[in-house]
């Protein structure tokens, strides 16, 4: 009877679809969702430290990487248990607004100004402000993340520090791409432009083309990371125990040592500073 057979086939197909998906959802209890930035994800730091945390606690950490602004928005909507980002002012506002429990400093790395090896703008120096002024003066191509990420807000702060109101003074040389760090580096590589990047992503980035570091080592290029548990009083389903365990581990001596131990090509990418005053 074709009618019955077809109905059976339908039921079977539906059950198969649902149960396959269901099987994926097993063991969800001992897991947390952490929203972090593209720079930490792309640098490979999590691949290094999460297995250690899992071995100790049995908690699965699921990392979704977005720009800092986006990650904080996701936390505001209650879709993350923990946010681990790098834009101190935005983080403080997040906590002040009641979306995060408490901000803990974790580590820092630094930003570097990347540009063509030939340095057409003559931006090479130890001074980021002088470098940006030179780029603006020459109208040399500059790629901006333009995505409200931590790196983007750091870049905007640096323009401000250089006395340049970039929103008003930008010209066709200044391109906002609205994408992640990797995409910005790919774009800069393809168009021989300057771009501000975090050192971790730069070290592990492969498609460099003609790009090299133009400015590094300036104190103003310092990049602080903070971690926050999303406020369980705002969002009841936040896994506060597992989430807090992760936060505590990151700032514990053990977690801090794990961060310091992560190296690519012998270079340390992140510097743990949970106990540094004012970080």
């Amino acid at each position: 009877m074709p009618a019955r057979r077809t109905a059976l086939a339908f039921a079977a197909a539906f059950l198969a679809g649902v149960s396959l998906a269901q099987a994926q959802a097993q063991a969800q209890d001992r897991s947390i969702v952490v929203f972090s930035t593209t720079s930490t994800q792309d640098s490979g730091l999590f691949g290094h430290i999460l297995p250690m945390f899992k071995a100790k606690t049995g908690i699965d950490v699921r990392v979704v990487s977005q720009g800092t602004g986006q990650a904080l928005d996701t936390g505001r909507r209650g879709d993350a248990d923990v946010v681990f980002v790098h834009a101190k002012a935005q983080e403080q506002k997040f906590v002040a607004d009641g979306f995060g429990v408490k901000r803990h400093p974790v580590m820092y790395n630094d930003f570097v100004l990347i540009g063509p090896k030939g340095d057409p703008a003559g931006a090479k120096s130890k001074d980021i402000v002088a470098g940006l002024k030179a780029i603006k003066a020459k109208g040399a191509n500059f790629i901006s993340r333009g995505d409200r990420s931590g790196t983007h807000s750091a870049e905007l702060n640096l323009w401000r520090a250089s006395g340049i109101d970039i929103a008003k003074e930008k010209g066709p040389w200044y391109k906002e791409i609205g994408q992640g760090m990797g995409a910005a580096l790919n774009t800069a590589s393809a168009s021989n432009a300057y771009v501000l990047a975090d050192r971790g992503t730069w070290i592990s980035f492969k498609n460099r083309g003609d790009l090299a570091i133009v400015v590094e080592g300036d104190n103003r290029l310092f990049n602080q990371y903070g971690v926050m548990l999303v406020n369980p009083e705002k969002h009841k389903h936040v896994k506060k125990d597992a989430g807090q365990a992760f936060v505590n581990w990151l700032i514990s001596p053990e977690g801090q040592a794990a961060i310091n131990a992560y190296k690519i090509n012998g270079q340390q990418l992140f510097f743990a500073n949970a106990n540094a005053p004012g970080a």
Binding site: V33, T38, D42, F46, G47, D60, R62, V63, V64, S65, Q179, G180, M181, G182, A183, L185, N186, S189, T201, S204, F205, K206, N207, R208
Partner: peptide, 24 residues
């Protein structure tokens, strides 16, 4: 899905990720 390593990473999101890392 969020492109979570080992949990929601598919062929296409992995390709997007590797592209963004510059590993063409």
């Amino acid at each position: 899905g969020g492109n979570i390593d080992g949990f929601t990473r598919t062929m296409t999101t992995a390709i997007a990720l590797e592209t963004s890392k510059g590993d063409l």
